[in-house]
């Protein structure tokens, strides 16, 4: 399966998924109005990946800003991986926030509340 890469823009996130390594990076900004249109190819790629996943999966989310409609798309992504976790495959989400950005840290706590797989919240200096 090919790697999945999207370069960031002022309103859309950087996305890098490496199926061989089980590494899934997403971050930057996700503040577009029409989120579904943007995220659909990402959902499709993950669906295909889930048919033959790596044994260990690490999602790294490093956001500066995301709007509430993007949060719905992020939960959709995380739930797809939650399905793997329920099958006994290792899934771990690393949620990063910038120093002093308490709201982003709290968003990580929100996701930790609603997801059943391990999620660690980590501070980073600069995106």
């Amino acid at each position: 399966m090919e790697k999945f890469l999207l370069e960031p823009t002022e309103k859309t996130p950087h996305v890098f998924f490496d199926p061989d390594e089980g590494i899934f990076e997403i971050g930057g900004r996700s503040i577009i109005e029409n989120t579904v249109k943007f995220y659909e190819p990402i959902f499709d790629w993950i669906e295909a990946y889930l048919e033959k996943p790596a044994l260990k999966n690490t999602i790294m989310a490093k956001f500066e800003y995301f709007n509430t409609s993007s949060s719905k798309c992020l939960i959709e992504i995380f739930r797809k991986f939650e399905g793997l976790h329920k099958k006994g495959i290792k899934v771990h989400l690393e949620w990063y926030y910038e120093q002093e950005d308490e709201d982003m840290r709290e968003s990580g706590e929100d996701f930790r509340t609603v997801l059943s797989f391990p999620l660690s919240i980590k501070e980073m200096k600069v995106i």
């Binding site: 029409n34 989120t35 579904v36 249109k37 709007n67 509430t68 409609s69 949060s71 719905k72 798309c73």
Partner: peptide
């Protein structure tokens, strides 16, 4: 469910 025309209803 996310409604593309009206956002997430979470704002």
């Amino acid at each position: 469910k996310l409604n593309e025309k009206e956002g997430a209803g979470l704002g």
